[in-house]
Lab assay of single mutants.
Amino acid sequence: DHDVVPEDKFQETLHLKEKEGCPQAFHALLSWLLTQDSTAILDFWRVLFKDYNLERYGRLQPILDSFPKDVDLSQPRKGRKPPAVPKALVPPPRLPTKRKASEEARAAAPAALTPRGTASPGSQLKAKPPKKPESSAEQQRLPLGNGIQTMSASVQRAVAMSSGDVPGARGAVEGILIQQVFESGGSKKCIQVGGEFYTPSKFEDSGSGKNKARSSSGPKPLVRAKGAQGAAPGGGEARLGQQGSVPAPLALPSDPQLHQKNEDECAVCRDGGELICCDGCPRAFHLACLSPPLREIPSGTWRCSSCLQATVQEVQPRAEEPRPQEPPVETPLPPGLRSAGEEVRGPPGEPLAGMDTTLVYKHLPAPPSAAPLPGLDSSALHPLLCVGPEGQQNLAPGARCGVCGDGTDVLRCTHCAAAFHWRCHFPAGTSRPGTGLRCRSCSGDVTPAPVEGVLAPSPARLAPGPAKDDTASHEPALHRDDLESLLSEHTFDGILQWAIQSMARPAAPFPS
């Protein structure tokens, strides 16, 4: 592969990997390779389809078979030569091979799209000592099968071997295949498990690692696999990028399955594409389908809103127990993405979901129960707010008499603000006073009005108090039968009158 990737590009890729991570280095090298001529790309395919690569990765054979028959990708048995050289000459001794072996032994695996480039050397060096003999053996194999790289107009793939297949390693990572398949204008990513390549439709969760975000852009890794992070704060999961590491605690105790298979379609829109997988259930989501939507993949363990709600429900009964003089119970939860139609709101002032922060849900004790107040519409209280300059209440639009249902020339009671006709409430011909108009209920007259088809109010509507207090003497005590009587009149003013009279009014101040 030294004929494909020059030394300066190799060093530039290593520097970019240390600065921005393996995914960015892979993407940059792939983009550079696509700008080369067809001879360089053909050399790339020839390096990929060597015999030892085909033996190690069985899924490469179907890719090789898909090439046109007129494309010669065979390799000479006596060494490598550029395709432009007409004579089959043995190339001179390859010093770059020693360079590659020494550099890969030092860096474990470079971040390139060629056999030198995919593992994360920093994480491997940190986690190597417990498994040094086995990992050293794996390093000797890295130059042979560490990076199976493929690129063409139909298929483009980048393979990364790992030393996680050490025997006896619980939940060992089998390997990473960062794979971009450009077929019919689409893009897919796969993962390699035990020599087999699994596409998103049959993606397997190998051991402790999972394909957290099938994305090839942005600074985030394709698999949430930063070796420096180790395990999740809650004892979460091992990262795919942690090559040759000792077994780590796999999943939280509440995880239903340690080796679950995540779905390959969004649980909201039932469509495929780039998904984020939940650590607590097999569901996966688009970032845009979450509520609120996320802009980037959160670091650490992530769970959907259903799993978060289940966790909150487990903690909430203990938080609601009476604990005198104790601060509110704080339950730190990872930043969760909410699927459509589901929402768990945190306290005000918290950062938005999706940031690399930890939301704190506070379970406050329930407030003391209070008697429910009568629910009145805002339009129902409008007549009470229509007060004239002299303190006389004006008529609201649409006000109707509670007896006849007519809204023409209605009066407004100064005591309960109900609309009424003087002739309907006082049919006996009582003279109307000039000021202080009161309806039949507030004036103490319980004589029913002779209106055909309208039920008369119940005599129990009024329960006047002592006459010594004029204001308190007109406080009506309405009961269920009074409400039914008012409802039978089918008037809004009657219902409003009952609601206003049912509310307690402050006692009249004593004259000074």
Rank of each mutant, 00 (worst) to 15 (best):
G241Q: 02
Q243A: 12
S245M: 14
P247C: 05
A248L: 14
P249M: 11
P249W: 11
A251P: 08
A251I: 13
P253R: 12
P253T: 11
D255K: 05
D255F: 15
L258E: 07
D264I: 04
E265N: 15
E265M: 03
L275N: 04
I276Y: 13
C277L: 09
P282V: 12
C289H: 15
L290F: 15
L290N: 08
S299G: 11
S299C: 09
S299N: 15
S299A: 07
R303N: 10
R303E: 06
C304D: 15
Q309L: 09
A310P: 09
A310K: 05
A310M: 15
T311M: 14
V312A: 06
V312E: 10
Q313K: 08
Q313P: 12
Q313M: 14
Q316T: 12
P317R: 12
P317T: 08
R318K: 04
A319E: 09
V329T: 09
P332A: 11
P332H: 05
P332W: 15
L333H: 13
L333N: 07
L337W: 04
E343A: 08
V344L: 12
E350W: 09
L352E: 12
A353N: 07
A353C: 05
M355W: 15
D356Q: 01
P365K: 10
A366P: 14
P368C: 15
P368K: 15
A370G: 13
A371G: 08
L373E: 12
C386P: 13
C386K: 12
E390F: 10
N394M: 15
G402S: 06
G405Q: 13
G407D: 07
T408H: 11
T408Y: 12
L411T: 04
L411I: 11
R412C: 02
C413E: 00
H415Q: 11
C416R: 03
C416I: 01
A417N: 14
A417V: 13
F420P: 03
F420D: 03
F420L: 02
P427I: 10
P427F: 10
R432G: 07
P433F: 07
P433H: 15
G434V: 11
T435V: 10
L437P: 08
C442M: 00
S443C: 05
G444P: 15
T447R: 08
T447I: 05
P448G: 07
E452H: 05
P459F: 10
L462G: 11
A467H: 13
D469C: 08
D470A: 09
S473R: 07
H474M: 15
A477H: 05
H479P: 11
D482E: 12
L486I: 04
S488F: 06
S488V: 03
D493P: 00
I495F: 07
I495L: 05
L496G: 01
Q497W: 01
S502F: 04
S502M: 00
P506D: 01
A508I: 14
P509E: 04
F510D: 08
